[in-house]
Nucleic acid binder design. Structure first.
Ligand SMILES: Nc1ccn([C@H]2C[C@H](O)[C@@H](COP(=O)(O)OP(=O)(O)OP(=O)(O)O)O2)c(=O)n1
Ligand SMILES: [Mg+2]
Ligand SMILES: [Mg+2]
Length: 767
DNA sequence: ATCCTCCCCTAC
DNA sequence: TAAGGTAGGGGAGGAT
């Protein structure tokens, strides 16, 4: 075990890098530094490093001779070229949605970000095939967590089994060698030149012309990930998979309270992973997951360090009969009191990304130790409540997140922002439909139903530099969402309705087809699968009928509820309801006296006194602590809706009643697609407009008589007064119900259009 | 107080 | 040539 803990270090005399700093951002100059190697320090350091690598190769790996560095480099590039030439995904020259009729599926097959994004699906399958883990045994001694992460995972799969050729060569994984081919993983030799994941091949070749770019082999990567997980899962069922090459394991129950026992376990796991998968892992050990995650950073090989490289190579070299070596053991124990933790750049903390790093640097914070000196109040100003709490704990090594190895999925989606170019809106509409269908297929695989739909549109920035590639370039990413039910299942009508809604949201961003560089769709509000409302999609309203929407809103709802429970309030004059430091409901008389919503109660009090009214406090309860209690309002609200349903059921024709808030409802006879399952309280077979009686020229008069009936009935049975707006859409209906409020209105307001309303109150509505 | 939408940030 | 995805947390501002 390489450890910063003195007691451990003293038991592990072999370690020759325990006191070295963490491996952060090493360039070629830095990379060979430290106890591993002498320092290469001049500008042509890269060249020097390369030269020394050549020598090193020739002297250090007798098992790998007889070929020299140059010859093997050429052979390696030939292997890469051969793989590319046989790769079907690289055969056609179709790169954009315009060139390829099957663009969406081809893209996902070739996308490594899609691959690592959907890895969790396979992982869940593996877990489902195993017996469910018993509850974790009660903790007897200390907690011990491992964080296990494969070294340069994709790159190591790419070179596995090809040691004779690839040993000591700089290797990266990407589809191509062109300038804007993005690198997903670089081996530690390549990292010595500064090559990193996310970098484009163009830049990488400038740093290192010898770089060997190997193509993806997703099947091999997935199989390797499975071998990796099998190894970990056979050690303990208490694992939390983080990605295809990374896992946490709670091994508290497997070890003694003794670092030697932790070391032995980590070594065993590491050896097992290597013997099964042929790839090397690094392991962080600590008392919590946060510290274990950070420990792994110290366990990783030093870029360009020949001993680290040699260790890995020797292990890989077992193929060629070399002895496995566990110097540079790839295991690190980290404690929160460690000096190397305090010296770690704050950016290395999980949760601190590029933006937070900038924020922190503005306040002079570079390291984890610096961050510890920042008071919580200052962090709050910079980051807000939750992030401040999180940073405060992160830098102190505190991590008490609950152990939830399989958190329930909350959303599912699909997006593409590469190769997306459109000339007209028809092609964009088809693309939206394709991705929406793909997202529904993914939802269907989970058998869940969703209640919200979010679309994202990548819109090219007008000032973005024009580049020849097919990437997205500089974009603003716009999003729009709606409450919209999606059921599992791919019934054509349901798919069509979802596509229509997605298209509506896409259009509402205002991006023109020529500006669009990407599109994504996400289904959220996932619930357990339930039988849905089968008639919804089938019973589509004929398009030709004019819509009539009613918006109902109870007058002074909370006060009306108080009057029900305390009839004396009815004669008490002007009333003002308050809670905490907030006025929340005002009777018309009190309004006339100048009381405003959200006024401080102390300001409202004198106004109320001057007109002989009363301040009424919201319902509250004492137990388990003093708190406002909304129970009575909820009760009356439910009664009111139940009664509305009964009334509507007796009417000829059909209605959809949508519950908008505790006291609002509207008839959403027009709404087919954007209905929300929680909000649709009632669903009846046909629609208002479908009824002969309400359709036609006098539909507003018909709607008004319905409204009058509802108002009277609700007054009589529930004791609340409702104002109603009647209009051809929801916006106008809602405005109508405001204009209908007494004293300005008479309870019902018909708004046939924005400029055609008989009520003067409607004209006077404030912005 | 609480919910919702849009946006930003982050980890893989 | 080249495949810049998936998902969650949380803040600001607006609503009831
Ligand atoms: N920007 C990125 C980062 C990662 N990956 C893929 C390729 C990596 O091999 C794999 C695992 O990611 P890691 O962060 O664990 O990186 P590596 O395993 O490559 O290197 P390390 O040794 O630092 O873990 O995910 C990617 O495609 N693009
Ligand atoms: Mg890794
Ligand atoms: Mg990883």
């Amino acid at each position: 075990v390489e450890s910063d803990a003195e007691s451990v270090a003293s038991t592990v005399p072999d370690s020759d890098r325990g006191e070295d700093g963490p491996p952060t951002e090493p360039g070629p100059e830095e990379s060979a530094a430290g106890p591993c190697e002498e320092k290469a320090d001049s500008a042509p350091a890269a060249q020097e490093l390369q030269n020394s690598l050549v020598e090193e190769q020739e002297s250090a790996f007798p098992g790998l001779q007889p070929e020299d560095y140059r010859a093997r480099l050429q052979a390696a590039k030939a292997v890469a070229e051969e793989l590319r030439s046989k790769e079907p995904l690289l055969q056609n020259g179709q790169r954009t949605v315009r060139d390829n009729p099957n663009f969406v599926q081809t893209f996902f097959k070739a996308s490594r970000l899609h691959f690592i994004g959907v890895w969790r699906e396979r992982y869940e399958e593996i877990l489902d095939s195993l017996p469910p883990p018993p509850p974790r045994p009660a903790l007897r001694g200390k907690s011990v967590f491992l964080h296990i992460d494969m070294d340069c995972f994709f790159a190591s799969v790419a070179t596995r089994g090809r040691t004779q050729t690839f040993a000591g060569l700089p290797v990266a994984v990407a589809w191509g060698t062109g300038s804007s081919s993005e690198i997903s993983s670089a081996n530690y030799c390549a990292r010595a030149y500064g090559i990193r994941a996310g970098m484009w091949a163009g830049e990488a070749f400038q740093l290192c012309p010898d770089l060997v770019v190997m193509p993806y082999e997703f099947d091999a990567i997935m199989e390797t990930a499975e071998l990796f997980y099998r190894s970990v899962l056979e050690t303990t069922p208490y694992v939390q998979g983080i990605s295809c090459d990374e896992v946490f394991a709670d091994v508290s129950h497997l070890v003694q309270d003794d670092v030697r026992s932790w070391q032995a376990l980590a070594r065993k796991i590491r050896a097992d992973i290597w013997s099964r998968s042929g790839c090397v892992a690094s392991i962080g050990v600590a008392k919590n997951r946060l510290l274990a995650r950070l420990a792994t950073k110290f366990a990783k090989p030093r870029p360009g360090c020949r001993k680290c490289g040699k260790a890995a190579l020797d292990r890989a070299g077992e193929e060629s009969g070399l002895r496995p070596c566990d110097e540079h053991a790839g295991i690190f124990l980290l404690e929160e009191s460690s000096e190397c933790l305090a010296a770690l750049p704050a950016r290395e903390l999980p949760g601190v990304g590029p933006e937070s790093e900038k924020q922190l640097q503005k306040s002079g914070v570079q390291t984890v130790g610096d961050l510890r000196t920042v008071p919580l109040a200052k962090l709050r100003e910079l980051f807000g409540e939750k992030q401040a709490q999180s940073l405060f704990r992160l830098c102190r090594g505190i991590d008490d997140r609950p152990w939830d190895p399989r958190p329930a999925r909350k959303s599912v989606g699909a997006q593409i922002a590469w190769g997306v170019r459109f000339e007209g809106s028809e092609a964009l509409r088809r693309f939206v439909a394709e991705l929406t269908t793909e997202a529904l297929r993914r939802l269907e695989r989970h058998g869940r139903r969703g209640s919200s739909l979010t679309v994202k549109v990548w819109k090219a920035r007008p000032d973005a530099p024009h580049c020849g590639g097919v990437g997205s370039g500089g974009c603003d990413i716009l999003s729009r969402s709606a409450q919209f039910a999606t059921d599992p299942g791919l019934a054509p009508a349901a798919v069509e309705a979802t596509c229509a809604e997605a298209w509506r949201l896409c259009e509402s961003t205002g991006a023109t087809p020529a500006q669009v560089r990407g599109f994504g769709i996400h289904i959220g509000g996932l619930e357990k699968a339930q039988p849905s409302i089968p008639s919804l999609i089938e019973s589509r309203k004929p398009q030709s009928l004019e819509k009539v929407i009613l918006h109902l809103d109870v007058d002074c709802f909370f006060l009306a509820v108080h009057e029900k429970y305390d009839p004396s309030l009815k004669e008490a004059g002007p009333l003002v309801l308050w809670q905490y430091n907030d006025v929340i409901c005002i009777s018309p008389e009190a309004k006339a006296a100048g009381v405003k919503k959200h006024m401080r109660p102390s300001e409202a009090q004198p106004l109320v006194d001057s007109i002989g009214g009363r301040m009424v406090h919201a319902f509250s309860r004492r137990w388990p602590g003093p708190r406002v209690w909304y129970g009575p309002y909820q009760t009356i609200s439910r009664e009111m809706f139940a009664h509305l349903h009964r009334l509507l059921a007796e009417e000829p024709g059909g209605f959809i009643l949508e519950r908008l808030s505790i006291d609002e409802a509207r008839d959403v006879s027009d709404v087919l697609a954007p209905y929300s399952p929680e909000r649709v309280v009632c669903f009846v077979e046909a629609f208002l407009e479908a009824s002969e009686a309400v359709a036609g020229a006098d539909r507003y008069a018909q709607a008004k008589s319905l409204a009058q009936k509802l108002v009277t009935e609700l007054q009589a049975t529930i004791g609340v007064r409702v104002s109603v707006g009647i209009a051809p859409n929801r916006l106008l209906a809602k405005l109508g119900s405001i204009a209908a409020k007494p004293p300005r209105g008479d309870g019902i307001c018909i708004v046939e259009g924005p400029d055609s309303c008989a009520s003067p109150a409607f004209e006077r509505l404030e912005t």
